[in-house]
Design a binder for these strands. Structure first.
Lengths: 139, 139
DNA sequence: GCTTATCGTCTGCGTTAGCTTACGATCTGT
DNA sequence: ACAGATCGTAAGCTAACGCAGACGATAAGC
């Protein structure tokens, strides 16, 4: 139970950390020619196949209407498939193509490498606690 | 050295955490009738007295031009002072009034209490590591 | 069958953000 | 004294975001 009465608010620190991580990711994403939202889509589809676009939008905290041009582009580039569901022809089944999966893996590998250089500054047990807590608090 | 190859990207988790914390803070700030940027100003001024508005702006990652109406409002409400520096009459010396300090302390107390309910879900050593790492990575 | 609801798409509105320029007042270096 | 830089202020521009409304196609409940 350490004295943390002098630390800044969690939100302020979280905002700063987020800014830093995004600044770190941006050149990586640019190098792979993929936008932030598009990468979020690939990540979501890789974690679990999403049936509807609306579900995908809420999963990544995006607006379903603003997601459409992103999906258009990903589909045009052959990174995702968007086929009508035979069982419910209103919805479009979304999934990664092999190319999409490969691109996501390549980008994620670069991002993870950059993350490691940040995490390397931390004490080992702090790092473990940080990752565990961050994972839990972000769900 | 745990296997974290299945976790999401740090940026994605940080964004989610930030969203959650901001959503938690918003009703508190509203209850005290203070905006997010204004609270950031009070926090910055409390941590260390800032000489110029430009320095304050960069300290809280804000645009100096967009900060002006915020400062106007805080000054009008008697929460900060903004007096020309006798030594350099271009700059306005910023500092908290007693009322501003009191308001910040009241808001921060409420925010800390809300934060504790979040942190209570964590294992004790994870919490310590999380706070230490977050503090370090956000600087 | 008819009503109601859902999905994807399109369009527009209001807000917010960052960035740029301009200007007067003022300081600094020479 | 003069040139160049800095500070605070004002105004405008652009991009992105959340949100709401509307539409056609389709599904589900009664």
């Amino acid at each position: 139970m350490g004295d943390d009465s002098e630390r800044a608010d969690l939100a302020a620190m979280a905002v700063r950390l987020t800014r830093r991580l995004i600044a770190m990711e941006e050149p990586i994403l640019a190098r792979h020619d993929i936008a932030m939202w598009a990468y979020a889509v690939l990540s979501a589809l890789r974690e679990r196949p999403t049936r509807t676009q609306a579900a995908l939008a809420t999963a990544i905290n995006a607006d379903k209407t603003r997601l459409i041009p992103v999906l258009d582009d990903l589909q045009r580039r052959g990174l995702i498939t968007r086929d009508p569901d035979p069982a419910d022809r209103r919805v479009r089944l979304l999934s990664l193509t092999p190319a999409g999966r490969a691109l996501h893996q390549a980008v994620q590998a670069d991002i993870r490498a950059a993350e490691q250089t940040l995490l390397a500054d931390l004490a080992e047990d702090d790092r473990a606690g940080f990752l565990a807590a961050l994972d839990k608090l972000s769900h």
